[in-house]
């Protein structure tokens, strides 16, 4: 019994070491292969926006993806403020759009999960993308975190939680963080009702603030031959 369990532990340890010793390019290739199983998907969920000056209700959203790089985020009703970098919540296009030089940046720990860190530098100098850092769970072949710097939309961060659709590499929850500029209307433009309740000296630090969008997805329809209509 003891011998058995020891050998199992040894086996696991070996396997683990093997995984963490794996070449980063191989790991990425594995992920790419896993993702390429998805020709298209349609996902339904909610989007919750947390920006200091925006007070928006939770919006019902639909995500559409079609190989190789068609992606659309739509709100099913009402007005929605969609962050400019929101297209990047879809990891599936990442590998299809760019050719990268990959740098192995070692390991890290995110929410008690040991991850491999890969820095992706696009080969094309004119690409909007400057640097994309992936934090990969090598055991389950899932991208848990992505930090992207772009020329136009600044830096943003994605955190992904996987559950039901982890076998497809599709997250149940995406937390999208980005920088926003301070919003300031000229006083007197709106003739507002001043109830004398607003006393906040903290506005000085507010010049540029962080915004957060949390997308919770509860239903995916995968490979259902999605029409191109949705991407118009």
């Amino acid at each position: 019994m003891i011998k058995n369990s020891t050998s199992l532990l040894l086996l696991l340890l070996l396997f683990n070491q093997q995984i963490f010793a794996q070449d980063i390019n191989v790991l990425l290739a594995n992920i790419k292969t896993k993702m390429s199983k998805i020709k298209d998907y349609e996902a339904e969920g909610q989007m919750k926006t947390k920006v200091v000056f925006l007070k928006l209700p939770v919006a019902a959203v639909k995500l559409y993806f079609k190989n190789p790089s068609k992606f659309k985020l739509k709100t099913s009703k009402g007005i929605s403020f969609i962050p400019k970098g929101a297209v990047n919540v879809n990891m599936n296009s990442l590998f299809n759009e760019h050719n990268f030089t990959v740098i192995d940046a070692g390991t890290d720990n995110i929410n008690n999960v040991k991850v491999r860190v890969a820095k992706l530098l696009p080969n094309d100098d004119n690409s909007n993308l400057v640097l994309s850092t992936l934090y990969i769970d090598p055991v389950n072949l899932l991208i848990i975190k992505n930090k992207t710097t772009t020329k136009e939309n600044g830096t943003y961060e994605l955190m992904m939680n996987y559950n039901k659709y982890s076998s497809y590499g599709l997250p149940d929850e995406i937390l999208f963080s980005f920088n926003t500029k301070d919003y300031k209307l000229p006083k007197g433009l709106t003739f507002d009702f001043d109830d004398q309740s607003a006393k906040n000296p903290l506005s000085k630090t507010n010049k540029a603030s962080k915004g957060e969008v949390k997308i919770t997805l509860n239903k995916y329809s995968i490979n259902k031959n999605l029409s191109d209509e949705f991407f118009k």
Binding site: F53, L54, K55, L56, P57, G78, I79, Y183, K184, L185, K187, L189, T190, D192, A198, K199, N200, S203, N206
Partner: peptide, 18 residues
């Protein structure tokens, strides 16, 4: 449709969606 309120509250500006 939903309604947007643009508002100045003290030193802050806000956009409210109802």
């Amino acid at each position: 449709d939903d309604m947007l309120i643009f508002r100045v509250k003290g030193d802050e500006s806000q956009i409210l969606q109802i």
